[in-house]
């Protein structure tokens, strides 16, 4: 009896140590490349550092500089401008396509695969392609406009249009992903709800407004959050297409952070921008969650 209990304990001990051993790689990797950079971010915010010379304590210097840095606020405004166009466009197009695909149509898999294709392809490819579509003289979009007698549009060279142009491109790239999310959402709505509504004589529009939309609320919230995070992570598109111009109208937070680190070697300040940007993401996502959840309640 005693021996078997001791044996059992021995087996348990052995399983425990194997558990630690198997988790060890993650723990070490987390300490080096997760926890350390996270802690170091808080240190960098209060220092001036170009990596090569010793760090210099500047107290609130970086934060004060950030608050008075017009380019940070410009980047934040640009991001809001981007999201303001990108999210509604994304929601409407994705929901419309998903709603069409959710009907008994032939070739549904093929259509879904085509809409999804830009999602898997590198943003570098998409941006180089759209740069040609948007080109002032040779671009396909302007060629199409002039062919029907309309004037050319300065898609990327006008400071008011450049960000909306990037937002349209980003919508084209990502919308297939949201079509799939909405399809999953649509398929989870019980058919009986529609049948009951149809018996009561509700039109298809009514059904959409009073059944589909409310039932899709969790998906809509998800799309809002994911596109907001995407908007705050905007980098490849302005980096390749515009370099942040014209007149900083497409400067994004990540592009600004990259420039500060890469061209000026200002690690402390770049980290401060990153810190500020992460806080903004938290705030915006929390606000969205609050608003959408209140609407549901």
């Amino acid at each position: 009896m005693n021996r078997s209990r001791r044996n059992q304990r021995k087996v348990r001990r052995k399983l425990e140590s194997i558990g630690y051993l198997m988790s060890l790689p993650y723990i070490l990797h987390f300490l080096a490349f997760g926890a350390y950079p996270l802690a170091f971010a808080f240190i960098l915010v209060f220092h001036k550092w170009n990596i090569y010379l010793p760090m210099k304590w500047v107290g609130w210097g970086n934060i004060r500089f950030l608050i008075h840095d017009p380019l940070v606020w410009k980047a934040l405004w640009n991001t809001f401008y981007f999201v303001l166009i990108h999210i509604p466009a994304q929601l409407v197009v994705a929901l419309a396509l998903a709603e069409l695909l959710n009907r008994p149509v032939r070739g549904r898999t093929l259509f879904r695969a085509i809409y999804f294709m830009p999602v898997v392809i590198s943003g570098v490819v998409i941006t180089i392609l759209w740069q040609q579509l948007y080109a002032q003289d040779t671009g396909l979009l302007n060629r199409a406009l002039t062919a029907v007698g309309l004037p050319r549009i300065p898609w990327l060279t006008d400071y008011r249009l450049a960000m909306p142009s990037i937002a349209v491109m980003a919508t084209w790239k990502n919308v297939g992903f949201y079509v799939v999310l909405f399809l999953v959402g649509l398929q989870s709505i019980p058919r009986s709800l529609y049948e009951a509504a149809a018996l009561d004589g509700a039109s298809e529009w009514k059904q959409f407004w009073h059944i589909t939309l409310p039932m899709l609320n969790p998906t809509i919230l998800l799309v809002l959050i994911l596109s907001t995070i995407g908007g705050f992570s905007l980098f490849i598109e302005p980096y390749i297409m515009t370099g942040g111009g014209p007149a900083n109208s497409t400067l994004s937070g990540v592009l600004y952070l990259y420039k500060q680190a890469f061209f000026f070697n200002r690690m402390g300040y770049a980290a401060t921008i990153g810190f500020f940007w992460a806080m903004m993401i938290f705030v915006v996502v929390l606000l969205q969650r609050k608003v959408v959840e209140r609407d549901v309640g």
Partner: peptide, 17 residues
């Protein structure tokens, strides 16, 4: 917890590391 941290926060410290 790590999955909730935006990548922008640790990008520069990771780079300096």
């Amino acid at each position: 917890f790590t999955m909730m941290i935006p990548a922008q926060l640790t990008l520069i410290p990771l780079y300096t590391l």
